[in-house]
Amino acid sequence: MSDTIELKYEVSTEDFTRAGEASSDVKKKLRQMGVPPEAIRKVAIAMYEGEINMVIHANGGTITVLIDSECIDMTLQDRGPGIPDIEKAMQAGYSTAPDNVRNLGFGAGMGLPNMKKYSDEMKVETELGVGTRVNMKVFIPE
């Protein structure tokens, strides 16, 4: 498998019940490709957290996933308010999630820490009033 496969998803905020669909679809496709389960698990966790953040903190956006034999590369680009203090946002337990979202079980403030932990590389670029772009890479073991 030397080719690169590209998957693209629109993440909308309108339908909360669909949050997680992109991650589920990627998981399914990686399984079909025979990617090792541990790498799939890392991708599923990191991407789901990112997808949920796009839904609850930003106004949705797009996810692009590039897959080759060595790496799963995820880019999540949203149209949200941006993150004023990334260092603070990265702290375990820090969350600005509103009550209606917390009542659904979100807002533990563990999303960004999970993304950092389960991806092998992570880069966050954010601009206030414009949006946030998160790039995460999970390397596929030999």
């Binding site: 789901y48 949920i52 659904l104 079980g105 979100f106 533990a108 563990m110 999970n114 932990k117």
Partner: peptide, 12 residues
Amino acid sequence: DLLSVAMGRGQE
């Protein structure tokens, strides 16, 4: 009950 905790720690 927290989804992010379950996401990080839930075992197969």
